[in-house]
Every structure is written in structure tokens, then in C-alpha cells.
Design a protein around this nucleic acid. Sequence first.
RNA 1: GGCGCCAUAGCCAAGUGGUAAGGCAAGGGUCUGCAAAACCCUCAUCCCCCGGUUCGAAUCCGGGUGGCGCCUCCA
Length: 538
Amino acid sequence: MAPPETLRVYNTMRGEKVSLTPLEPGKIKIYVCGPTVYSYVHIGNARSFTSFDVIVRYLRYRGFDVKYVRNYTDVDDKIINAARVIGQWGTRLTVQNDGSATLDGQPFKWTTDGHKLTLIDRAELPIDLAKQTVTLDGEALVRQGAPNDPIEHAAHFVREFEADAKALHMIPPDVSPKVSETIPEIITIIEKLIAKGVAYESRGDVYFQVSKYPQYAKLSKRKLDDLQAGARVEPGDAKREPLDFALWKSAKPGEPSWESPWGRGRPGWHIECSAMSAKYLGDTFDLHGGGLDLIFPHHENEIAQSEAASGVELCKCWMHGGFLDLEGAKMSKSLGNVVRLRDALQKVDAEALRYFFLSTHYRAPLGFSDKSLADADARMEYFYETLRLANERPSAGGVDDEKHLRAIEHEMDDDFNFTGALGHLSALFADMNKQLTEKDKGKANAALTALKASVKKIASVLGLFEDDPAQWLSRRRDRAVKQRGIDVAKVEAAITARADARKAKDFKRGDEIRAELKAMGVDIMDTPQGTTWKVTPE
RNA sequence: GGCGCCAUAGCCAAGUGGUAAGGCAAGGGUCUGCAAAACCCUCAUCCCCCGGUUCGAAUCCGGGUGGCGCCUCCA
């Protein structure tokens, strides 16, 4: 399929939807700001990455040759801090995913005010834990046996991220560069900026001089005067002007550092993305993605650095994903209202979580709640139950389904309107169910074959329906059984007893048994193949 | 304080000038011994409020109210 001419994308720089015109016909180069790997990703992060996952999948579905780069920030203050905490307490302190924690094998209590993890009830220990606080941005993330090496700490959480991403059915990017592996390129860019007179060295640090770059803040549309007012100067900073930001930070003891023309040190936060995107995508590329919170200062600084260095536009179109909200507030590690992805995946199926993410447009806020998750899970059950029945039918040719695919493409072509597409997906499944009850089986099977083919195509875009339906349904039931503490043997005995009662025409007893099971959360279905049962998760 | 986003039925949520997708819930029906599942029907004369532009606005403009975000680390 030839890539369409009509695809429109909301460009934050312009504040409106623009036609996606690739720099090179048929090819799209996209850079997505990846995670800072100091702890586990939360579902807010996951929502954003899932959005770009579907966007990349759709661009490929549409026939574009996509090069997808998503970095890991593995050199950063947060990582250094997290590793330091672990170095201090080492293997003695662990906090499990369920919130329980131990110190030297003994359970202890902890609280968090959103910024600090406070250990309580353990004043007798060598460290005065009654007063001691751990600044981990609300994340009680301490893993057993972690060494006090920030790079190793980061590498560990890269692996954890990759496991989580895979569990959420995300496609891997073509390139996942790391800061620690891009140091030479970072140094080269900084040298270029110094040579051009927009950056300067000061006491082993290097800063970007914002006043030398007149277009600064064109993405976030701020006025320099306003920024000036709120600018913060750290005590240790050697900036010329408050708005200047660090490209290179001189090494402090215990921090990872590399040799540079300015002495040992490490890169500032923003320069890495400039270096990595240039290295893998060139000076100008098509799409740049990230969360809304990255607009300022991260992307703003990225633009300033890259464009000052290269003299050309960094990116044709800036895409920003909306936040995931928990009880009306943005989910973020610094607020402490965090649900980790891996914890969410314990409670709900990965595809149900994906469906939930896609149920609101990628730029809009998405409210997370147990109910919204349960709704998504119930919807996935409907889809999979339909597919299970449809898969029992033999394939038959002769019919095409264009209607649903075209409708979904129409939605997706308009700024990746996942949610609009999902509306048409409902129509597709309703059609499948109609065909499943159609009297003319031959005709129905031909229609179902075409509809199943459409589902398969859409599945590849949404990252849904990748499981075998029967297995998916079975896993869902297993999880619900476990959650509700249901005794499977008891359920099956009850079903047998009911079958006996029904055989004896004792429908009253049969219905009593049904009611008893219902009270346990078990629904039974009488089918031509016998009685089956299902459990709705709590 | 500065900048920006949002406000659609009981709930969630698409829809950026042409007369309100979809899902959940609810009510009715078909099927079933009864159920479940599925399917069908019903469910916003109207899109926070006020004013304006227009033949025509949920959609554009101005004002107001309410919520959120960024301005410090953040997807």
C-alpha cells in the first residue's frame, strides 16, 4: 500500500494539525524521548509509550518505512541519587511491590509524603531511621543486592523496562541508544556550540547561553522575560545568566564521569537527546514525541542546542502525549501517586490495559481508576469471546471487508484518533456476532473470514488480539478465580450437581445452585456442548 | 503572577462550520425450562454560561465560570 497523502498530525510547534509530508518520500524518522531508568515505569509512562507504539505501528501499516528511535536516559541525577541510597543501605533494605518492606530481614513501616520515603519504627538501628529520609521521589524502589554503581543501576532498570514493555506488547524501537554510549557525540556537539559562541565553559561546566539563541522558547511560546523571573540559580552554578542550562557538568566524587576537553564530567540532561537523534536520524527528522511535560524545558532546550549546532530545523513536527490522571491529578513520581506498570499488569490483562490507554485520544488526559480498567477488561472479554466463536468457523472465500478498515483508517489518518477507530471496531465486532447467528452458514462463514482478516490487520496496529482467544479467556478466568479465592473443584461439583438436578427435572434445585454460584461471582452458561462457567474479576 | 489546555447524556468518550460516533449503565424485546452470551429497539431538539460572526456553530471570535497542566525533576 502506498503511504497516503492525507495523514494529519497535531504539531505542538504550530498549535494545529498539519499534513505529514515526509522529508524523504515514503520514509518517516521518529524520535521518542524514552525513560530515565532510575526505577520502574509507572502506567502514566506506559500510556505515553503505548501511544507512540501505536503511532509507529500505524505509520508502518500505512506503508511508511519508519525508523523509530527511543532512548534510555541512563546518566542522570535521579539515577545517581537512587544508586547512592541503595549503596548506603545495600542489601539490608528492600521494599516489595506490594508495599511491604524489610530492613535486615525485619519488616518495617514507611510513609511517603510524595517526595520522601520515611522509615519509621526502627530508631534502634545504627542509622537513625526515625529521622532518616530517603529522597526517591516517592518511589520505594530498593532492590536487593544493588551495587552502588549508577550505570549498573540504570542498566538494571533498562532490563526491567524492556520486560515491562514486552509484557505490554510494545514493539521494540529500531534503535534504543543510551547516554552512556553516546558520550563522544555529545562532546562533539558541545564543542560545536562553544565554537559557535552559544555555549561557554565555566569552572569545568559547560552552559548553553540562552540569550545567544533568539528563537528560544518557540515551542512552549514563552516570553524570555517571564522565564527570567522564575529562573532558578543553584548555589553551585557557574552560569553567566539565570536561564543558561548545563550541557556538561564537572564530575563530583562518586558520580559517573568521562574525560572531556573540560575535564572529567558528565552530560547535562537535554544534550543527550540532541546527540542521539542526530546520530541515528540526522540533523532534521520527521516526528519527535514525548509527554506534554517535556515541552518545557527539555524539548525547548533540545531545539536550542540542536538548531544552534546544525543551523537547520531539528524536527518537522512535535507530538506530545497527554497525562494519565489518578483521582484528578497527574500521575508522577514526584507526586507519589504512582501505580507501577508491573503492578497494574498483575491486576489486569496487558491488552485490557492497552485498550484502556487507547480509549481516550492520545493528547487528552486519561483518568485512571479501577472502574475504567474493569470496563476495558470487560470489553476485551467481549472481543475475545466473539473471536473464539468466529475461529470455530471454517474459512470461506469470496467476500471482502473494506468498510470497517476504511472507517478505521479514516479516523487514524486524522491525528491518530485511536478512540474514533475503536468506535468502528465495535461495529466490526457487532457484525461478526450477527454473522455468528446467521442461518445461512455458508454465507456467514465467508463474511466471517473477511471480518477476521480485518481484525487481524487492525490488531497489528493496536497491539490487541495477539493472543489465542481461548487462552486469553482462560487466563482471565484463572486470574479472577485467584483474585476471588474461588475453589474450582467446588464450582465443578456444583455444576455436576445442577446437571443431575436438571436431568431429574428439578429446576428449582438447579436454579438454587445457579444462584449460589452467582453469589460467589461465578456465572454459568448452558451451551450445546455442556455447561461452562466464567468469573468476572473483582 | 506568566503561558497553555480542557468543559459533549447518569458515567466514560469521539466529533474544529452543515445539523450530535462508540462504550458502560438503564428500560423494552428475541433466544433460553430459568439464566448467561449475543442480537434488535429506546435512551443529548442538544454540546458549561453570556454575547458576537455566519444562510448555518458543540465546532470560529470576545467575555465569564469551573477543572487541569507547564513555568523546578517528570511520559
